[in-house]
C-alpha cells in the first residue's frame, strides 16, 4: 500500500511542478508577444514619419537653396533610420537592433531639428501652407511615436522584470528568453545635441 501512496505523491508533485513551469513559460511568451505587438505600433508611426520627410525636404528645397548640406544630412539620416527601423521591426527587443534604431533616430531628430531651426530664417517658407501642414503632421506623428514608445517601454520593462525575477528566471534562462532593450526617449537625446545656432 505505501508504494501507491508514495507514487501518487511523487506523481502529484511532479505534475504540479510541470504545470507551474508551463504557466511561467506561457506568461513569458505572452509578455514577449505584448511588447512585440507594442513595437509594431511604434513601427507604423515611424514609417509614417519616414514618408513625410521626403515631402518636407521637397517643399523646403525651393526656398533653402544654400542649405544643400543640411538637406542631404536629413535625407541620409532618414534613410539610415529607415533601414535601422526595418531591422528592428524584424526583431523587436533585440539589443543591437534597438541600439542602432535609437542612434539613427537620434541623428534624424537632430538633423530635422537643425532644418526646422534654419527654416525659421526664411519668411516665405514660414508662410507656405504646405510647409505648415507638413510640420503640423510631423509633430503630431512625433507625439504619437512618443506615446507608443512609452507603451512599448512599459511592456518591455514588465517582460524584463518577469524574466529576471525568481523563479521565472530559471525558465527564461533555459528557454532562451533574451533581454529586451528599451527604446530611449528621442526627445532627451535631441535635447542633448540641440542644434547649434551661431550668430556670426
Amino acid at each position: 500500500m505505501p508504494t501507491v501512496v508514495i507514487a501518487a505523491i511523487v506523481g502529484g508533485a511532479l505534475l504540479l511542478l510541470l504545470l507551474f513551469l508551463v504557466v511561467i513559460y506561457n506568461s513569458l511568451v505572452a509578455l514577449r508577444n505584448h511588447f512585440k505587438n507594442a513595437f509594431a505600433q511604434i513601427d507604423v508611426q515611424l514609417r509614417r514619419r519616414y514618408d513625410l520627410i521626403p515631402n518636407l525636404v521637397e517643399t523646403v528645397k525651393g526656398y533653402m537653396t544654400h542649405e544643400r548640406e543640411t538637406l542631404d544630412a536629413v535625407i541620409q539620416a532618414r534613410n539610415s533610420a529607415m533601414s535601422a527601423g526595418q531591422k528592428a521591426a524584424a526583431n523587436p527587443g533585440n539589443p543591437e537592433a534597438m541600439t542602432n534604431l535609437n542612434q539613427a533616430e537620434a541623428q534624424l531628430t537632430g538633423s530635422l531639428g537643425r532644418l526646422i531651426a534654419l527654416s525659421e530664417a526664411y519668411p516665405d517658407l514660414k508662410a507656405n501652407t504646405t510647409m505648415a501642414s507638413l510640420q503640423e503632421e510631423l509633430s503630431t506623428t512625433e507625439n504619437k511615436i512618443g506615446f507608443a514608445r512609452q507603451a512599448y517601454n512599459d511592456s518591455v520593462t514588465a517582460y524584463n522584470i518577469k524574466r529576471e525575477s525568481f523563479p521565472s528566471s530559471l525558465v527564461a534562462g533555459t528557454f532562451g528568453f533574451t533581454e529586451a532593450k528599451l527604446l530611449e526617449s528621442i526627445d532627451t537625446q535631441a535635447q542633448r545635441e540641440a542644434p547649434k545656432v551661431s550668430f556670426k
Binding site: A30, N33, H34, N37, A40, R48
Partner: peptide, 27 residues
C-alpha cells in the same frame, strides 16, 4: 489553467495563432 489562459482575453488566442493587430493608421 486553460480557462485562465484563454479567458485572459481574445488577444491571447490571436497572438497564440501568430496574429498581428491592425493599427488604425494603416496605409
Amino acid at each position: 489553467y486553460k480557462v485562465a489562459q484563454l479567458a485572459s482575453g481574445g488577444d491571447s488566442v490571436a497572438l497564440m495563432l501568430g496574429g498581428t493587430e491592425l493599427s488604425g493608421s494603416t496605409r
